[in-house]
Design a protein around this nucleic acid. Structure first.
Length: 799
RNA sequence: GCCCAGGUGGCGGAAUUGGUAGACGCGUUGGUCUCAAACACCAAUGGAGUAAUCCGUGCCGGUUCGAGCCCGGCUCUGGGUACCA
């Protein structure tokens, strides 16, 4: 099964079409066919509709709706559809020639390649994931995932409860809307701050402030997002305009400040300097008065951000504790008609268009610039193009395809964007359940039978991408009745990453001269990754470095005193971009794939991060050879015996079966490998090459070292693959001990052991211990206060 | 700042419900085999001490007959995340 094959992605297109044909009904709290919404519009218009929609959707009555043209109706429906086209500010990445989702942008640079990303307005397909924000949070309680991934998703969705409040601008019809989580502190507001990008900035700036504001805004826009976030110093400028406090009617200064983000909330805040540290810092820096609305709290040194005090100087909120006051404030704000209680999410709708070649094409065509979907039985495959590059006019690569290059062509033109990488990966686990179904993406009886993915082992780096989108699609497919569960992955384990050891060179600023690690502090340098293959033991091969890349061919070096160029080093994520990748090919060549596989498991617990270090690999390789020798004679001829295994042989085998079974349930693969080693060591010592024992051991080993297991299984005379052999049954009776080697401790410290019959009662054990010669020695003349006997486990003598 | 992990020999790590701390592997040392080496095999290997013995799971305290494990307080390391109003 390949997500890139048309047999697969035609179903991705089908799911996308279902999203387009659906809206989110808030009263049923699920996705519903858009037809139902249309019927509702025809009868009632949209004034009371319980549907999630774009904030700028106009209101209309039933008769207005019925009089709209098809095109107008379609335009409105786009505000409701879960897959919709809209002009969106997107993260445009020139370097990659495509749009990126928010989670693909890190610090203002593309996660892949590290290219700059800018904001650009484009017509794009988006998915209304925000409709699912709440369920994506609450659903986390039903899955067995690590706390950290749940936390990352919660933060990413970023639900905050509060109120949206609109402040009237003095002598103007304009209003400034803010979002606040602390409406109870509204009487502490005496200024407000807009982000430099806020749409009202220009309008609100009075002529005498114009120059200051313009230069401030210009400076802010020149900075990359990364620089702006890194810069924690307080900066801002006054517009000269005032807003009117909705309750007191007092003047409220309107400022502009970089610390307010354009992309969160409304891009403006009401500043409460006594209750918010950032506002406090801003007010202090610019000498703005700080009103104190907290009863008995000193705010001269810092803001008071906790909700643990009563309010003062706050009219109807006086002497009310914060929790109640928030409720009361929202009521009054709503009564006054200048705001409303609101839940705000940090999560944005997911942009679903990309401008590359490789990806799933949309089953969409345009007629008169309106988007239409193909009939259900038709799907689009990627057309052939002459180059995988954008056209000269900047359209996506698919725009290179001529009419006859498309397998389907309808309307004026086909959609030339493609879907993002996470489209296919959002539902592939469902296709696994029914990979050859030609009539459906996955038969309901199949998904009902297999259900959720029991265990998903994957990296934490997909926390806000793939793992969130899969949950969204699963919930959608569940809502529409296509599957019977609404979370894709029941349990998840995040495997630890293998870290690599990176090396660095130090380039002196604005030169092509590199200084050795030990002398780097004598210069202003920037640290650059260097390929670990041209570094040996932290010493750089200078000639190889010059040949490594064109720009270094004439590099000069300041060496350390012993004439070597020393590199810096650090253990970090193994990654191509860090040039610290060690491929396992060489190890496979030398030791075989079984050894590599076993060694990776043997390194330690699955979830743990660890640096790649091959020092111990010959240990597991020796184990494999030891197992081989167990079933071969000195001339390397396969040799097993058909003698009846001894009691001891059975004990060794069944001890191993038990342990392997237990450990696999705990996902503790490193200890399973140890168990195998112990088993082979014991069988070697017992000189046991019994066919019966070896067969069962081979099955146990087969999923850990598949190649050697298959080979030995075959040599044992089996026709079928070991992968379909039945897992050996554990038999407790082989492990019954008739004697117990009791550890005897004094005040909790183990001193000696005593071999006793397993059937002895507590009292008999105590008698035997007290009779023992060493007991008298450790008692040293004292008499025991108490003797604790835990049968078959331990004896503790308290003195 | 907040959230999540984690701290055990020279190293990777084990100890599953509170019950023998250091399984297994690496490394090291000594030995056997060999002309020699590699491989393999045998033995030793937490620290101190000739030994008896004593001390030992980041630090301080607590619970318990008994704590690497439970509780309280610290500390250090790793990871994630944030001018989110």
């Amino acid at each position: 099964m390949q997500t890139s094959s048309p047999n697969y992605y035609k179903w991705t297109q089908w799911i996308f079409k279902q999203l387009f044909d659906s809206y989110y009904c808030t009263s049923q709290d699920k996705a519903v066919q858009i037809l139902e919404l249309i019927l509702d519009f025809e009868k009632n218009g949209n004034k009371q509709s319980n549907a999630v929609c774009d904030e700028n959707t106009p209101e209309f009555s039933a008769s207005e709706w019925n009089n709209y043209s098809e095109k107008e109706q379609e335009k409105i429906l786009l505000n409701y559809r879960l897959a919709f086209l809209s002009d969106t500010w997107v993260n445009w990445c020139e370097g990659l020639g495509t749009v990126l989702a928010n989670d693909e942008v890190k610090d203002g640079l593309s996660e892949r390649g590290g290219f700059p990303v800018e904001q650009k307005l484009m017509k794009q397909w988006s998915l209304r994931i925000t409709a699912y924000a709440d369920r994506l949070i609450s659903g986390l309680d039903t899955v067995d995932w690590s706390e950290s991934i749940k936390e990352i998703q919660k933060n990413w969705i970023g639900k905050s409860k509060g109120a949206s409040v609109s402040f009237k601008v003095e002598d103007s019809e304009d209003r400034i809307e803010v979002f606040t989580t602390r409406p109870d502190t509204i009487f502490g507001v005496n200024f407000m701050v807009l982000s430099p990008e806020h749409e009202l900035v220009e309008k609100l700036t009075i002529s005498s402030q114009k120059e200051n504001v313009e230069s401030y805004v210009k400076k802010a826009k020149l900075k990359s997002e990364r620089e702006r976030q890194a810069d924690k110093s307080v900066s801002g400028v006054f517009t000269g305009s005032f807003a009117i406090h909705p309750f007191t009617g007092n003047k409220v200064e309107i400022w502009i400040g970089e610390y307010v983000l354009a992309t969160y909330g409304t891009g403006a805040v009401m500043a409460v300097p006594c209750g918010d540290q950032r506002d406090w810092d801003f007010a202090t820096h610019f000498g703005i008065e700080i009103l104190n609305i907290f009863d008995g709290v000193d705010i001269s040194e810092k803001a008071h951000e906790e909700k643990d005090v009563l309010l003062a100087n706050s009219d109807f909120l006086n002497a009310i504790p914060a929790k109640k006051a928030i409720q009361k404030a929202i009521e009054e704000i709503e009564n006054g008609g200048f705001g409303v209680g609101k839940i705000n999410y940090r999560l944005r709708d997911a942009i679903f268009s990309r401008q590359r070649y490789w990806g799933e094409p949309f089953p969409v065509y345009y007629k008169d610039e309106t988007a239409y979907f193909l009939e259900d039985d038709k799907h689009v495959t990627l057309p052939k193009v002459d180059k995988y590059l954008p056209t000269s006019s900047g359209e996506p690569p698919l725009a290179r395809a001529k009419k006859e290059d498309w397998n389907v062509f309808e309307g004026d033109r086909m959609e030339t964007n493609i879907m993002p990488g996470w489209a296919g990966s959002s539902w592939y686990f469902l296709r696994y359940m029914d990979p050859t179904n030609d009539g459906e993406f996955c038969g309901k009886e199949k998904s009902d039978y297999w259900g959720q993915v029991d265990l998903y082992i994957g990296g934490a780096e997909h926390a806000v991408g793939h793992l969130l989108y899969s949950r969204f699609w699963t919930k959608f497919l569940y809502d529409r009745g296509f599957i019977g569960f609404d979370e894709p992955f029941k349990k998840m384990i995040n495997q630890g990453m293998i870290l690599g050891r990176s090396n660095f060179v130090y380039r002196i600023k604005d030169t092509n001269t590199f200084v050795s690690f030990d002398k780097r502090k004598e210069h202003q340098t920037s640290r650059l990754h260097v390929d670990i293959r041209i570094v040996d033991n932290d010493v750089l091969d200078v000639e190889a470095f010059k040949n490594w890349r064109k720009e270094y061919s004439d590099a000069e070096f300041i060496l350390s005193d012993d004439g070597k160029y020393l590199c810096g080093n650090e253990v970090e994520k193994m990654s191509k971009s860090k040039y610290n990748v060690q491929t396992p090919d060489e190890l496979v060549e030398k030791f075989g794939a079984d050894t590599l596989r076993l060694y990776e498991m043997f390194l330690g617990p699955l979830e743990q991060f660890k640096p790649w270090d091959t020092k111990g690999i010959n240990g597991v390789h020796n184990f494999i050879r030891k197992f081989w020798r167990l079933v071969h004679d000195d001339e390397n001829n396969f040799l097993v015996s058909d003698d009846k295994p001894t009691q001891e042989n059975h004990k060794t085998l069944h001890k191993t079966i038990k342990k392997v079974e237990e450990e696999i349930n705990r996902h503790s693969f490193n200890t399973v490998v140890s168990t195998f080693m112990i088993c082979v060591n014991e069988l070697t010592e017992q000189k046991c090459n019994s066919r019966e024992i070896v067969s069962d051991f081979t099955i146990l080993l087969s999923s850990y070292a598949p190649h050697i297991s298959e080979e030995i299984w075959n040599k044992l005379g089996n026709e079928n693959s070991v992968t379909i052999a039945e897992f050996p049954k554990f038999n407790e009776s082989y492990l019954v001990e008739d004697q117990i080697n009791y550890p005897v401790s004094f005040n909790g410290k183990m001193r000696f052991k005593i071999l006793l019959d397993a059937e002895l009662t507590k009292d008999e054990v105590e008698d035997e211990v007290m009779k023992h010669e060493k007991t008298a020695h450790y008692l040293d003349g004292k008499s025991p206060k108490k003797v604790i006997v835990v049968q078959k486990r331990i004896v503790n003598i308290v003195m």
